[in-house]
Measured scan of single mutants.
Amino acid sequence: AGLEKQLAIELKVKQGAENMIQTYSNGSTKDRKLLLTAQQMLQDSKTKIDIIRMQLRRALQ
């Protein structure tokens, strides 16, 4: 149950990062740093999601 909860949280983080990227990508240059931060968050989240999914698969075997 813990892994499913972690996965749900990470999927929400990923969605939030995608929303932030959309918001900041057509903003001013001061938003550039926020855009880069959001892109890093998205990448980190995708990595965590992959790891959690692997752990889930392993647990189900």
Rank of each mutant, 00 (worst) to 15 (best):
A1F: 10
A1S: 13
A1T: 13
A1W: 05
A1P: 01
A1V: 08
G2Q: 13
G2D: 15
G2P: 10
G2R: 10
G2E: 14
L3H: 10
L3I: 11
E4C: 02
E4H: 05
E4V: 04
E4T: 07
E4D: 09
K5I: 03
K5Y: 07
K5G: 11
K5F: 01
Q6K: 04
Q6V: 09
Q6F: 08
Q6H: 05
Q6T: 07
L7F: 05
L7Y: 09
L7T: 09
L7G: 12
A8Q: 12
I9P: 13
I9D: 12
E10H: 03
E10I: 05
E10D: 00
E10Q: 12
E10V: 02
E10F: 00
L11H: 05
L11S: 12
L11D: 08
L11V: 11
K12Q: 06
K12S: 12
K12L: 01
V13W: 01
V13Q: 13
V13F: 03
K14F: 09
K14C: 04
K14A: 06
K14D: 02
K14Y: 08
K14N: 02
K14L: 07
Q15R: 03
Q15S: 14
A17Q: 06
A17M: 06
A17N: 06
A17G: 07
E18M: 04
E18H: 02
E18P: 08
E18G: 05
E18W: 02
N19C: 06
N19W: 02
N19F: 05
N19M: 07
N19G: 08
M20Q: 07
M20F: 03
I21F: 05
I21D: 14
I21Y: 04
I21P: 12
I21S: 11
I21E: 08
Q22C: 01
Q22P: 07
Q22T: 09
T23I: 10
T23A: 11
Y24I: 09
Y24E: 13
Y24C: 08
Y24Q: 12
Y24V: 09
S25V: 08
S25R: 13
S25C: 04
S25K: 06
N26F: 03
N26G: 11
N26V: 07
N26K: 13
N26Y: 00
N26I: 00
N26E: 09
G27Y: 01
G27F: 05
G27E: 11
G27H: 06
G27V: 06
S28P: 09
S28I: 04
S28Y: 01
S28C: 08
S28W: 03
T29L: 06
T29C: 04
T29I: 06
T29F: 08
T29K: 14
T29P: 10
K30Q: 02
K30L: 02
D31F: 15
D31L: 15
D31K: 15
D31W: 15
D31M: 15
R32I: 04
R32A: 07
R32H: 10
R32V: 03
K33N: 12
K33R: 07
K33V: 00
K33L: 01
K33Y: 01
K33Q: 06
K33G: 10
L34A: 06
L34R: 09
L34W: 14
L35I: 05
L35K: 09
L35R: 07
L35Y: 06
L35N: 00
L35W: 08
L35A: 03
L35S: 03
L35E: 00
L36T: 13
L36R: 14
L36P: 08
L36C: 04
L36I: 11
L36D: 13
T37Y: 08
T37E: 08
T37S: 12
T37C: 11
T37G: 10
A38H: 00
A38L: 13
A38W: 08
A38P: 00
A38C: 13
A38K: 00
A38F: 12
Q39H: 04
Q39L: 03
Q40T: 04
Q40H: 04
Q40N: 09
Q40M: 09
Q40D: 00
Q40A: 08
M41E: 02
M41Q: 09
M41R: 04
M41D: 04
M41N: 00
L42D: 00
L42R: 03
L42Y: 06
L42F: 08
L42T: 00
L42M: 05
L42N: 02
L42H: 06
L42S: 00
Q43I: 04
Q43V: 06
Q43D: 06
Q43S: 09
Q43F: 02
Q43W: 07
Q43G: 01
D44H: 15
D44E: 11
D44R: 15
D44P: 02
D44T: 14
S45K: 02
S45M: 15
S45Y: 01
S45T: 13
S45C: 15
S45F: 15
K46I: 05
K46S: 04
K46L: 08
K46F: 01
T47L: 08
T47S: 14
T47H: 09
T47P: 01
T47M: 10
K48W: 03
K48H: 05
K48L: 03
K48M: 04
K48I: 01
K48P: 00
I49R: 00
I49H: 00
I49W: 04
I49V: 05
I49D: 02
I49S: 01
D50E: 10
D50Y: 01
D50M: 07
D50R: 14
I51D: 07
I51A: 15
I51S: 15
I51E: 12
I51W: 15
I51T: 13
I52H: 09
I52P: 01
I52K: 04
R53F: 11
R53H: 01
R53L: 04
R53G: 03
M54W: 06
M54T: 11
M54E: 09
M54P: 06
M54C: 09
Q55V: 04
Q55S: 10
Q55I: 03
Q55L: 01
Q55D: 07
Q55P: 03
L56M: 12
L56E: 10
L56Y: 00
L56R: 03
L56A: 07
R57Y: 03
R57N: 03
R57T: 04
R57P: 01
R58P: 03
R58E: 07
R58S: 07
A59K: 14
A59T: 05
A59Q: 12
A59H: 10
A59M: 11
L60C: 10
L60K: 15
L60T: 12
L60V: 06
Q61Y: 00
Q61V: 03
Q61G: 09
Q61D: 01
